[in-house]
Every structure is written in structure tokens, then in C-alpha cells.
């Protein structure tokens, strides 16, 4: 029987990182293609925290959850977490291990895969099981200009998966989840790195864009600060959040924490409206999974029109005020 094992990351604020639920729903789909595969998770956290998450695991169709708790695990540590993860993996013997491609996941996963002498595919945006039953992990390379599907010759097959690319289950899938506690062998792990402090960031990467249902994003075509002011007013008129392309950020029109694209955020709103964004591939990879995309641009040949549901060729400075008026009137 094959097994899919997911890493349940705990955020600084002691929440389960949402990428777990995206992975859980995707793993259920992969498990269908593998004969009776079980989907399990492993959780490493401070003592007592796991109990708070039990319901979330039960509602996300996990077969087993392996838990290692200790007071020394309050702060993430590459050394402790990777050693404990290896102990759990050696016991569970999964065929596939999926980890969210967060900073923690991208620190932890290569340490685990190297120790297991197995492969790891980074920051995947597509996962499938091929006809031979192998994990086929697809990821963007060359700044999003080329997609590569990667297979692994060894077991376990590992991948880090970009958050927000897959959707969580639309509703709870309740299962009779087994919770298995592992006693972490902390005393025998030599640590050479110590945690000093954590300061909540000013430019925190997690903001309202992550959960926004409607995003209005501006690019170089918004030209100046007045243009972005207009964009904000438009976003307000339809109940949306403001995002920006890298071009707009580089022009100093928008802060870097609302940048959408390869080097910024990946967003998946119900509606994405791109204003004055030409549609460089680096931008597209950050918003292409939105349910509906509308583009407004004065260049009818702009590549953004190749990836949208609805387009408007014209001057953003003319059409946005008209739209604002229309929505304000309603």
C-alpha cells in the first residue's frame, strides 16, 4: 500500500498553515490514482498544541496524523525538525512526501531529502500521478518562461508545493483520523543553531491579498501616483483589494508587499482585474489561477489578453472613472 505524507506546518501565530488543506485536497485526488493510498500528515510542535488542530485534521480526510510534541519545539529549528521528521518518515515509509513551499518548507525539505538520498522537486504548481504510478511534479523554471515536469527515480518522491495554487476542499470531508504520538529524541540531537528572537515584520508577506475575493491590480500603465489613487478608488467601488505588477512596484507606485507574480505573491481570487498590465509571464504565473480575469489595456496586442476571460481595449484613465461612477450610482 502506498502512502502520501504531508507536512503540517505551524505558523508563528500557532495556526496550521493553510497550504496543508490545499495539499490535503490535492493528495486525496492523487490517492485515487494510487491503489488505496493513505493520506497522512506529520506535525512537529510545542507540547499541547496538537490537540487544538485535531478537528481540522479529522475534517480534512486524513487517515493518520503523526505528532511529535516537545517544549523545545516552540520555534522552528532546521536541526530539530529535520531529525524528528526523518525519524517519523523512517517509521511511516511514505512513497510521496509533500511540503508547502514556504520559507520553512524550503528550508526543511531539502535537508530531509538529502539525508534520505532522494529527490526533491521545488516549488511545484502542478501534481499528478503518471501511468506508471509515479509522482509527476510540474514547476515553472527560467522565471516562469518554461514549465518542467519532473519525476523521481527513488523513494520517497518529494516535492515542495507553492501555496495558493491548489484549492482546499470546498467542504469538510470527515474521516476517522488516527492520531499517533511520537516521542521525539530531543536529548540526542546536537544543535549548533540557537533561536534569538522573532520580530513581526513591517513588510509581512501575508496580507489581505491572500484571502481577497476581488483583486484590482495596476501595472506600468497606471503611470503615476494619481493613477494608483484612481485604481484604489475603483477597487473600493467594487469591494476589491489593490495589487500591483512588478513594473508598478519598480516605478515606486506600489509597495513590494502587494506585488503579484513570480517574485511576489501568488493570488487566486474569484475575480482579478488587471489594469495597465501588459502581462509578462512573470506576472501571469502569479494570477493565472484566478477564477475570472478581466484585463483593461490600451494595447490590443498586450499578452494579458491571451489569458483573460474578458478584455477592454482602451485608456484606463478614461474607463476607470466611468466604471466608478456606474458602481457608485448603484
Amino acid at each position: 500500500m502506498s502512502n502520501i505524507l504531508l507536512y503540517a506546518e505551524v505558523t508563528r501565530e500557532n495556526f496550521l498553515h493553510t497550504v496543508l488543506f490545499e495539499l490535503a485536497y490535492k493528495a486525496q485526488e492523487l490517492a485515487q490514482k494510487l491503489d488505496k493510498a493513505e493520506v497522512s500528515a506529520f506535525l512537529i510542535c510545542k507540547t499541547g498544541l496538537a490537540a487544538e488542530y485535531k478537528e481540522a485534521f479529522i475534517n480534512s480526510a486524513f487517515d493518520n496524523v503523526y505528532i511529535a510534541e516537545d517544549d523545545s519545539l516552540e520555534n522552528y529549528s532546521t536541526e530539530l525538525y529535520s531529525k524528528i521528521a526523518l525519524d517519523i518518515i523512517k517509521e511511516v515509509k511514505p512513497d510521496i512526501i509533500l511540503v508547502g513551499a514556504t520559507t520553512q518548507g524550503r528550508d526543511l525539505a531539502p535537508r530531509i531529502s538529502s539525508s534520505l538520498h532522494t529527490g526533491l522537486t521545488a516549488d511545484c504548481t502542478g501534481l499528478d500521478i503518471n501511468e506508471k504510478g509515479q509522482l509527476a511534479a510540474t514547476r515553472p523554471t527560467f522565471g516562469g518562461k518554461l514549465m518542467a515536469t519532473i519525476l523521481c527515480k527513488t523513494l520517497p518522491q518529494m516535492a515542495t508545493v507553492r501555496p495558493k495554487v491548489f484549492k482546499p476542499a470546498p467542504e469538510n470531508i470527515v474521516k476517522d483520523t488516527k492520531f499517533v504520538y511520537f516521542k521525539p529524541d530531543i536529548e540526542n540531537i546536537k544543535t549548533k543553531v540557537e533561536f534569538v528572537e522573532f520580530v513581526k515584520g513591517m513588510n509581512t508577506c501575508i496580507n489581505e491579498l491572500d484571502s481577497a475575493q476581488i483583486i484590482v491590480a495596476g501595472g506600468r500603465g497606471m503611470k503615476n501616483e494619481a493613477g494608483f489613487e484612481l485604481l484604489k478608488n475603483f477597487a473600493e467601488s467594487i469591494g476589491g483589494c489593490v495589487g500591483a505588477s512588478r513594473g508598478a512596484v519598480e516605478m515606486g507606485l506600489a509597495p513590494v508587499d502587494i506585488q503579484i507574480g513570480q517574485t511576489g505573491k501568488t493570488v487566486t481570487p474569484k475575480l482579478y482585474i488587471a489594469c495597465g498590465i501588459s502581462g509578462a509571464i512573470q506576472h501571469i504565473v502569479g494570477m493565472q489561477e484566478s477564477d475570472k480575469i478581466i484585463a483593461i489595456n490600451n494595447d490590443e496586442k498586450a499578452p494579458i489578453f491571451e489569458v483573460c476571460d474578458c478584455g477592454y481595449v482602451g485608456d484606463v484613465f478614461e474607463v476607470l472613472p466611468r466604471l466608478i461612477n456606474e458602481f457608485k450610482a448603484e
Binding site: L120, M147, C152, I281, I284, Q288, C310, Y312
Partner: peptide, 30 residues
Amino acid sequence: PTYVSKAFRPVHNRGECEFCKDSSSLAQKI
């Protein structure tokens, strides 16, 4: 341990873009 089984240009499986002629039809779409 890993190898590239296939490399391809990103494709978008969204249908043809539907163009709006004026702001009111665009507002309707929104």
C-alpha cells in the same frame, strides 16, 4: 534522483477572451 520528463511552454486553458466595446458592458461583466 530526479529527472525532467517533459519541458513545455506554459499554456493557458482559458477560453477566448471576450472583448467589451464600452464601459457599461464591462461593468456588467464585472
